[in-house]
Each structure stands twice: as C-alpha cells, then as structure tokens.
Measured scan of single mutants.
Amino acid sequence: MSIQHFRVALIPFFAAFCLPVFAHPETLVKVKDAEDQLGARVGYIELDLNSGKILESFRPEERFPMMSTFKVLLCGAVLSRVDAGQEQLGRRIHYSQNDLVEYSPVTEKHLTDGMTVRELCSAAITMSDNTAANLLLTTIGGPKELTAFLHNMGDHVTRLDRWEPELNEAIPNDERDTTMPAAMATTLRKLLTGELLTLASRQQLIDWMEADKVAGPLLRSALPAGWFIADKSGAGERGSRGIIAALGPDGKPSRIVVIYTTGSQATMDERNRQIAEIGASLIKHW
C-alpha cells in the first residue's frame, strides 16, 4: 500500500482519535458579512469528516447552483462504474471539434489522439474542462443518470439537468442544476469515506481534487503551510461562485467545507476574496 493510499485508508482512524471539535460562531459572522459585502445569498456548511456531524452552517438547506462543483460527483459516478466493471479508466475516447464547448483548455489539445477516461476526469476536476465533463456525462448516460446515481446514494436534493455550459445559467428560483450545502457536503463525505467506492477509487477521487489547479484564489489562499486540501470550485452566471473541499491540518483532511453564493453584482475577484476570507476565519478558529 502506498503512503497516499495509507493516508486515505486511515482518515477515519486518525479522526477518531482527534480531540473533540467545537464550532466557532466567528466564522458564521464572516459568512454573514460576506453576504453584506456581496449583496447576495451565501450558503455555508462545515462537517466533521469522521462523524458527519454538522459543526457550523448557514442557509444549509437553500438551493444554490452547483456550477462546476458537480464534476466531482460526476467522476465519482464514473469511478463507481469502474468498480462495477462497467468502465475502464484506460479506455480512450475520441471526439471532434464539434464536441468542444466553451472553456476546454485540455480537451482542445487532444482532438487528434483523444483522451482516456482517467485523463478526462483529471481534466474535468483539476482544470474544470467543460468538454471533458460533457464527454464523461455521455459515458454514464447524461445528466439524468448522474441525478439517479445521487438518488441511489441517498441524495434526493442534488440534481443535474443540463450539460456544460448551460448548467451554469443560475436563474433565480430555478431548481435545475442545483444542490443544497448540506446535501453536497453529505454526498461528498460519502464519496470520500464511505463504502460506495473502493479504496482505490476513493484515493483516485481525492487525488484529482488535491491536484486542483484553478481554485488557488479561494480556500487555498488562506491555508497555512502543512495543511491538506482537496477541492473543486465552480463559477456561473449572475454572480455565482462555489467551492467544495476536504481539508485539515497535519497533512490530512478532517472536515468537509461547502460554500456557495449566487445573485451578486460583485466582480469575480471580490467573490473570490470573500470566500478566501471565510476560509481564513475557519482556519483561525479551527
């Protein structure tokens, strides 16, 4: 067993022997301040990774656009098919120029040779490549099948209805392509620590998230040296922004954090800054 596999296998073990965790309302004060600064709703939840206990939450059962955070769930569904012998990570998928959609920095470079399922998941999570996500959605049967996968996990809230990039439209009061912070946090925890996926697939999923290259201005910008984070960000229309993450000190994750916002007129930089400040408060009061 590799060191990384050992780390993920012992996530519940280490967490069980940690000192009790206590909620700190100071972080919620910052979440509410972010709402004021952005002029928009902000949803927040913080779960203990081992027990699933909610440590703090704000608007945990209000719907927010998922945006690209759905790509972690998508690759979880792909990995479940791999575990069941219905898919192979090494299978190569070929596609054409007509398949390319807006923001496809990886797939646009491989029109000639195609990409493997493993490479597509890596591109979808680490670079948020939209064509990679659409190609992977095709392998599982489309958005409705991802929703069905989530329902089978016990998540009857999260739903995907459309493809990239239309799913980022974020129309107010439109339930399409949305989740709730509580539902997303619980589902992410199941994917990373539950028995739904094999140990190898859980490790692969967290490795992809740990290698995320496009979430630097968010929670990662607030992390002290030595902290662990595996995350996936999302951005959408109407001032929408979000991030889902597993993080913790001492090089291992111990909490799940989900943050979503929508309806702001603020710039992307300002949305990023507010999420980073929430992260800084979380870490300060850990």
Rank of each mutant, 00 (worst) to 15 (best):
H24D: 12
H24P: 00
H24W: 08
H24N: 08
H24A: 09
H24M: 12
T27I: 09
T27W: 01
V29G: 08
V29I: 03
V29C: 14
V29N: 06
K30D: 10
K30T: 15
K32S: 02
D33T: 04
A34H: 10
D36L: 04
Q37L: 11
Q37V: 06
L38M: 12
L38W: 10
L38Q: 03
L38C: 14
G39A: 07
A40Q: 03
G43Q: 04
G43E: 03
G43N: 06
Y44F: 13
Y44M: 14
I45Q: 09
I45R: 03
L47D: 02
D48W: 00
N50S: 09
N50M: 12
G52L: 06
G52S: 04
K53W: 03
I54K: 07
S57E: 15
F58S: 11
P60I: 02
F64H: 12
F64S: 12
M66V: 08
M67Y: 13
T69Y: 05
K71I: 12
L73E: 07
L73M: 13
L74D: 01
C75E: 06
G76R: 04
V78I: 00
V78D: 13
L79S: 06
S80G: 06
S80K: 00
V82Y: 00
V82A: 13
V82D: 01
A84R: 14
A84W: 10
E87W: 13
E87P: 12
L89E: 00
L89Y: 02
R91K: 05
R92V: 09
R92K: 14
H94Y: 15
Y95W: 07
Y95V: 00
S96V: 04
N98R: 07
N98S: 02
D99F: 00
D99T: 13
D99H: 13
D99I: 07
V101Y: 03
V101T: 08
Y103V: 00
Y103C: 01
S104E: 05
S104V: 07
S104T: 02
V106R: 15
E108V: 11
K109L: 14
L111M: 08
T112W: 03
G114A: 03
M115R: 00
M115N: 02
T116S: 10
E119K: 14
L120D: 12
C121Q: 10
S122A: 01
A124H: 07
T126A: 04
M127Y: 01
M127K: 07
S128W: 03
D129C: 11
A133K: 14
A133T: 01
N134M: 06
N134Q: 03
N134Y: 06
L136P: 03
L137M: 10
L137A: 03
T139W: 00
I140C: 13
I140M: 15
I140W: 14
G141A: 09
G142S: 06
G142I: 00
G142H: 04
P143I: 02
P143N: 05
K144E: 13
L146T: 02
T147D: 15
T147C: 12
T147G: 13
A148Y: 03
L150Q: 02
H151F: 09
G154S: 08
D155Y: 14
T158C: 12
R159N: 15
L160Y: 10
L160F: 13
L160D: 03
D161Y: 02
D161F: 03
E164N: 15
P165D: 03
E166K: 12
E166H: 14
L167W: 08
N173P: 07
D174R: 10
D174V: 04
E175G: 00
D177Y: 04
T179M: 11
A182V: 09
A182N: 14
A183I: 02
A185K: 04
T186R: 04
T186H: 07
T187M: 10
L188R: 05
K190S: 13
L191Q: 03
T193K: 10
T193L: 05
L196Y: 05
L196G: 12
L196K: 05
T198I: 01
L199M: 05
A200R: 09
S201N: 09
R202Y: 12
Q204D: 05
L205S: 04
I206L: 13
W208I: 04
W208D: 07
W208E: 05
M209T: 08
E210N: 15
D212L: 13
K213I: 00
V214L: 01
A215F: 15
L218E: 01
L218N: 04
L219I: 15
L219Y: 09
L219F: 02
L223K: 09
P224Y: 00
P224H: 00
G226K: 10
G226Q: 13
W227V: 00
F228M: 09
I229M: 08
I229Q: 04
A230N: 14
A230M: 11
D231S: 04
S233H: 13
A235R: 11
G236Q: 14
G236T: 07
R238P: 08
G239H: 09
G239R: 07
S240N: 00
G242S: 07
G242T: 05
I243E: 06
I243W: 10
I243H: 07
I243M: 13
I244R: 08
I244F: 15
A245N: 06
A245T: 14
A246M: 13
L247E: 02
L247Q: 01
D250C: 03
G251L: 01
G251Y: 15
G251R: 08
P253N: 15
S254W: 08
R255L: 04
I256F: 13
I256Q: 14
V257G: 01
V257F: 07
Y260F: 01
Y260E: 03
T261V: 08
T261C: 11
T262H: 10
S264I: 05
S264C: 02
Q265R: 13
M268L: 12
M268H: 13
D269W: 10
D269F: 05
E270Q: 15
R273G: 11
Q274D: 06
Q274V: 06
I275N: 09
A280R: 07
A280V: 02
L282N: 08
L282D: 15
I283M: 15
I283R: 13
K284G: 05
H285Y: 02
H285M: 01
W286S: 09
W286F: 08
